[in-house]
Design a binder for these strands. Structure first.
Lengths: 164, 164
DNA sequence: CATAGATATTTCAAACTTAAAATATATGTG
DNA sequence: CACATATATTTTAAGTTTGAAATATCTATG
């Protein structure tokens, strides 16, 4: 704690200007992400008859064409295991992904895009990028870089410590 | 569309560097907000036996001590009307808020903190601010200001156009 | 005053989400 | 091999969230 923080917190129950600035920053992040997510959710529903969580799963699988385990998917998306089970169930029902057995491990399964899933996602991804760019049309290249730099700092600090 | 965008998009199906930078920025916002929300959710549950949505409602009502209508609450929190109904039901059951009739309008109701709700929230808010400050401990004062400025630009551009 | 349309809220069904329990399978140790 | 422990996934219960339909009430217009 630096000198001015120590001074401003001498009563014990107050919070520093810095902590208030960080709280404001967090609330602003929350506001933007809710607004943008809401817009994207509506577009997904109207244009694709689909949802953001399903798009996120397809996107992850599109980056890993050989497929991913359920546990890899949930780690990559930062959601619970049980959550992914339901989303994948629906994508299987839609014919966009398949579950495949894993050699030598009957507990696990690999989830992969089907041909239809690849085709659908490739089309949707382009449209999606356009939506995002429109929603962020006031974001200059420089500000985008600054934003990414600052946010990376935050997420690196909060990275889950891996066991080794 | 500027010259370089026109050039880089001449095939019709490509996307510009700027749109890719904006997409990366959006994904980074999403990553940070998921991570932080997850951390805060867990702390809320363990320390307060409560949830983020309830905290958000209490926070809104703490700012408006005279209470808010359900519709004001849902607009302020950017969630649906039906959503707020459920959260408020639970807060009423916990004794933290009350619904009061509105003079001259029997459709509406005003939701207000109870004494217990005020007391609980005041305590929780301080602890919450500390959690946020810790999670953002790598965020300097200058970066916080930059972040807020950039994000405000984005949210202003996406402000819901009000009818007049 | 009747009543059509607007507004405020709740209800509802479906999907998403979590944390914890349950299930199934693998692996290491005696 | 037996069995304890670890791992991968699904199931379950509770809560959150949405969008649409249903209710209830209000307001303006003829």
């Amino acid at each position: 704690m630096n000198k001015s923080e120590a001074l401003s917190e001498r009563a014990g129950n107050e919070t520093s200007d810095l902590s208030k600035a960080r709280l404001r920053a967090w609330l602003q992040i929350l506001k933007v992400s809710r607004k943008i997510e809401g817009e994207l959710r509506e577009k997904m529903r109207l244009e694709f008859g689909s949802t953001l969580p399903r798009f996120d799963v397809l996107a992850a699988l599109y980056r890993e064409r050989d497929g991913m385990r359920m546990s890899e998917l949930s780690k990559s998306l930062m959601v619970s295991n049980g959550n992914v089970t339901g989303i994948v169930d629906r994508l299987v029902a839609e014919g966009l992904v398949v579950r495949m057995p894993v050699e030598n491990d009957r507990r696990a399964s690999i989830v992969r895009l089907t041909k239809a899933g690849e085709k659908d996602f490739a089309e949707r991804a382009l449209v999606h990028e356009g939506w995002v760019s429109d929603l962020f049309s006031d974001l200059s290249s420089g500000d985008a870089d600054a934003l990414i730099r600052i946010l990376r700092n935050i997420s690196h600090h909060n990275e889950a410590p891996h066991h080794d």
